[in-house]
Computed example of a mutant assay.
Amino acid sequence: MIPFSILDLSPIAEGSDAADSFRRSLDLAQHGERWGYQRFWLAEHHGMPGIASAATAVLIGYVAGGTNTIRVGAGGIMLPNHSPLVIAEQFGTLASLYPGRIDLGLGRAPGSDQVTARALRRNLASDADEFPQDVVELMDYFAGSTRRPVQAVPGAGLEVPLWILGSSLFGAQLAAHLGLPYAFASHFAPQMMMQAIELYRASFRPSAQLDKPYVMLGYNVFAAETDEEAQFLATSMQQAFVNLRSGRPTRLKPPVRGYLEALDLPERMMLDSVLSCSAIGSPASVKTQMEAFIARTRPDELMITSQIFDHAARLRSYEITAEIQRAG
Rank of each mutant, 00 (worst) to 15 (best):
G73R: 03
G73N: 08
P132L: 10
R108S: 05
L94Y: 01
M78G: 12
F91S: 01
G107V: 14
Q90T: 02
L104T: 13
A109L: 09
N123G: 15
V135H: 12
V136P: 04
P99E: 12
D127C: 06
F91P: 03
G75A: 13
G100R: 07
S112A: 11
V136G: 09
A74R: 08
E130M: 15
V115P: 12
Q90S: 11
P132R: 06
R121A: 13
A74V: 04
L124Y: 12
D129Q: 15
M78C: 06
D127M: 01
I102Q: 04
A117Q: 10
D113L: 08
A119G: 11
L120P: 12
R108W: 06
L85Q: 00
S96G: 09
G111C: 14
V136T: 07
L120F: 01
N123A: 09
G100D: 01
F131P: 10
V115L: 13
L104S: 04
A117L: 05
A74L: 02
G75V: 00
D103H: 07
N123K: 12
G92H: 08
I77N: 13
L120Q: 06
P84L: 02
R118M: 13
N123C: 09
G111F: 05
L85N: 13
G100K: 07
Q133R: 15
L97E: 08
L79C: 07
I77M: 07
D134I: 00
A128P: 11
D103Y: 06
R108M: 01
A125P: 09
N81L: 02
G107D: 05
E130F: 10
T116F: 09
Q133A: 14
A109E: 08
V136M: 13
Y98H: 13
A117F: 02
F91I: 11
P99C: 02
Y98P: 09
P99H: 05
R121Y: 15
S126M: 03
A128V: 08
L104K: 04
G73D: 03
V115M: 09
A109P: 03
E89A: 10
D129T: 13
G73H: 08
Q114F: 11
F91C: 04
